[in-house]
């Protein structure tokens, strides 16, 4: 309970922090005032159409990645699982890359995220076909690895054959992941998918708790593993596909956040779900504030910063676990 309040408060504080940080130097109180009351200046437009959707997307993307990371770790009973594992983020990235390469992304505003989402849906269908309705969790991992490998090979192929160096540069920058210059159109595109994903993943807590004892024991306790797996795959795909479509590839959130929060919820997989959603939102908000405050004129990419912070953090966690194991 205290953890829930603490994490919620952290998200609120960082949300406000995200609203008041940015390129145009406006005093915080004036910026927040302009958000609520149209004062006729460009500040209102900046607040309502640039900073608000950006902060909202940070919350949505962070919560989606944290939640799906916790759910996948719970299902696979492996703390190294992360949302990218089932191959959906790789496929979404491929869709975006194709949209940039073909020039489709210039034809209308949402062409890129729509192409990414379409490819993510395709990847999910492929996973369901490959992993089958009643396979073990290992087949899901293998199917995910295969699809990730295929998507990354095709992405490399597109880059390799790209006749247009600008498109290639665009692709590389897009793949680093960012929340810059997003609008409410992105929010409305991602929200329905993410909401479905959140609802599906919120319903797996009981099954994940039972899986602490292994698949056989969980099944004997009345858990329908097939239904659980379907909800997990579809929920993760909806969350991660939509997140990648609007923000690009942002790693480490889904891996590190459940790791950090697991000891604080007594390692219960169901409690880790909501905690990781809040924690993921806080982490992406904080990172998105950092990219704007650290190098305001250099467009530091969110995904790059996240990996820079996330990898050492992860190393530290492994080091700590190693000491506990010894």
């Amino acid at each position: 309970m205290r953890l829930a309040l603490g994490l919620s408060a952290l998200v609120v504080v960082l949300f406000i922090g995200s609203l008041i940080s940015g390129y145009s130097q406006v005093p915080p109180w004036r910026a927040l005032g302009a958000l609520f009351a149209d004062d006729g200046t460009p500040v209102t437009i900046v607040m309502r159409e640039i900073r608000l959707p950006r902060a909202l997307l940070a919350v949505m993307v962070g919560a989606s990645l944290g939640l799906s990371g916790a759910a996948l770790q719970g299902y696979l009973r492996n703390p190294l699982a992360e949302p990218g594992l089932i191959g959906v983020s790789g496929a979404a990235a491929l869709g975006a890359v194709l949209a940039i390469q073909t020039g489709l992304s210039l034809s209308f505003a949402l062409a890129l995220p729509l192409a990414a989402l379409g490819m993510a849906v395709l990847a999910v269908l492929l996973i369901l076909a490959l992993a089958g309705p009643r396979g073990a969790s290992i087949t899901l991992i293998l199917a995910g690895i295969a699809i990730s490998a295929l998507a990354s090979a095709l992405t490399s192929l597109v880059l390799n054959l790209s006749p247009n160096p600008f498109a290639a540069a665009d692709i590389v920058f897009w793949m680093m992941g960012s929340l810059a210059d997003r609008s409410f159109a992105h929010v409305w595109l991602a929200l329905p998918f993410m909401a479905i994903g959140w609802a599906l993943l919120a319903s797996v807590g009981r099954g994940l708790n039972a899986l602490t004892l292994g698949e056989d024991a969980a099944q004997a306790m009345g858990i329908n593993l097939r239904a659980l797996r379907l909800r997990l795959i579809l929920g993760t795909a909806a969350c991660v596909g939509a997140a990648t479509a609007v923000a690009g590839a942002i790693g480490f959130v889904g891996l590190v956040v459940p790791h950090l929060l697991r000891p604080l919820v007594g390692a219960r997989p169901s409690a880790l779900l909501w905690a990781s959603a809040l924690g993921g939102a806080a982490m992406v908000l904080a990172a998105d504030i950092a990219v704007r405050e650290l190098l305001p004129d250099r467009d530091l990419k969110l995904g790059v910063l996240m990996a820079l912070v996330g990898a050492p953090l992860f190393l530290h966690l492994i080091y700590k676990t190693r000491k506990e194991m010894a």
């Binding site: 009973r77 899986l211 602490t212 004892l213 292994g214 056989d216 024991a217 697991r262 000891p263 007594g266 390692a267 219960r268 997989p269």
Partner: peptide, 8 residues
């Protein structure tokens, strides 16, 4: 198989 997946 005596599985206990998480440190609960």
């Amino acid at each position: 198989s005596r599985e206990i997946a998480w440190p609960v």
